[in-house]
Design a protein around this nucleic acid. Structure first.
Length: 376
RNA sequence: GUGGUUGUAGCUCAGCAGGUUAGAGCGCUAGUUUGUGGCACUAGAGGUCGUGGGUUCGAAUCCCAUCAUCCACC
């Protein structure tokens, strides 16, 4: 049993759980900071762990495979050792990258042929190969290699794509079962549910994924441009279909409101570049709403970034100082904003956990969401 | 004092054999960002072209004067 439900909300599908890995347990619902190339951009590992309490971070198969390369990671005993992060890591398979690098890729049944964005060299990813790569990277949770079609794709395209994703999943699972971990700790394998915005394809994909009997399931292909309501609809559709006793991971989502709405619909795990990417560009998530710290109105605001915020930077530095750092192009600005935003996200899911445990999740969420998207 | 140089957006400059609403970079103002090719991207504001005359259908552009600037020589 790697996943245990510890609390179930009365009037929604929201629940709390504990996901066990050999690098530590993860309390769900959880937000996982994205560390694509072995670094959560602009945030050092000590701050991630000791200051804001990150429990698990992401790496990316596509990026790590290209740079620094597997031999370098393998020789030091895996990504944890390489990047000095001794807690859980999940690696995305690179399916999304192949999709977002559309001009340079070529999909075949065998796999995806693509060119490196770094040096133009040609590579092929197969479902088996991607499992092997993630074994070498040594992630605690490894993801199936899927095709992530655009939101605008029509039924026929999505159906075709799903056939490939299903076949690739079976091959990936087979490979995963045949190979053992390389570094003495166990690894989990999560299939990815696709199917676009079409109910029958989503259900088909979910049932197929469930038949693999893995320890957790991901929902992919959402938040790729469709309205949020569509995403919520799909989650509601999948909620009764996916096994209750396994963690559900909604890939790439999202805004604070997206996350709370998804938690209500039974999702346990999230990742998103938004807190770090937007943070680097001067956008801050606060309990009062969203602020663009570069705006002139903050120039002489000497109040803390966020009073009572959960990172030390929140009270240590003023908005006016942070604005100055951004206007001056100082790297410290990106560091402070990234840490603040991640702290906000991690605190968001922490509060969600507390309210689920207390049975007050829905009322709390309703009030909270109103403020969240407000622009200050 | 004499000869020459240069004055165009907040800054640095382009435009000058005369011709529609004078441009660029940076800066400034605001917006975008959802399994990270991003200290990125998009948009906007801002100029009596030193000043005053003149030539011309038409002047940032040609002529004269003047002011400022820098250089060289007395």
């Amino acid at each position: 049993m790697v996943f245990q439900i510890t609390a179930q909300d009365r009037d929604s599908s929201a629940r709390c759980g504990i996901l066990k890995t050999d690098h530590g347990t993860i309390e769900t619902p959880i937000f996982m900071p994205v560390g694509t190339v072995g670094s959560v951009k602009a945030v050092c590992q000590r701050d991630l762990k000791e200051d804001i309490g990150a429990q698990i971070i992401l790496g990316n198969t596509y990026h790590l495979y290209l740079r620094p390369g597997l031999d370098i990671i393998e020789r030091v005993g895996g990504l944890h050792n390489f990047i000095s992060w001794e807690w859980p890591i999940l690696t995305d398979s690179g399916g999304f990258q192949i999709f977002s690098l559309a001009e340079k890729r070529k999909l075949t049944r065998e796999g995806a042929i693509f060119r490196s964005h770094i040096d133009g060299s040609k590579h092929i990813f197969t479902p088996e190969g991607v499992v092997d790569i993630q074994r070498k990277i040594g992630a605690d949770i490894i993801m199936a290699f899927d095709e992530c079609p655009p939101a605008t794709a029509d039924y026929r395209y999505i159906k075709e794509s799903l056939n490939i994703t299903k076949e690739w999943l079976e091959r990936g699972v087979k490979q995963f079962r045949q190979q053992s971990p390389l570094y003495g700790y166990s690894q989990l394998f999560f299939p990815i549910v696709q199917g676009g915005l079409f109910d029958d394809l989503r259900i088909e994909s979910a049932l197929h994924a469930i038949s693999m009997e893995m320890e957790g399931y991901a929902v992919g292909g959402l938040s790729v441009g469709e309205p949020a309501q569509e995403m919520y609809r799909i989650l509601e559709l999948l909620d009764p279909t996916l096994p209750k006793d396994k963690p559900r991971y909604l890939m790439g989502v999202g805004t604070p409101a997206n996350i709370l709405e998804a938690i209500e619909r039974g999702v346990d795990m999230f990742d998103c570049v938004m807190p770090t990417r937007n943070g680097r560009n001067g956008m801050l998530f606060t309990s009062e709403g969203i602020i663009n710290i570069r705006n002139r109105k903050w120039a002489q605001d000497y109040s803390p970034i966020e009073k009572g915020g959960s990172s030390y930077v929140d009270e240590k530095y003023s908005k006016g100082y942070l604005r100055h750092l951004f206007i001056a192009g100082e790297i410290l600005g990106a560091q402070i904003a990234s840490l603040h935003n991640l702290a906000f996200y991690l605190n968001l899911v922490k509060e969600a956990r507390e309210h689920i445990a207390q049975g007050s999740f829905r009322e709390w969420k309703r009030g909270y969401v109103k403020n969240l998207e407000r622009r200050l």
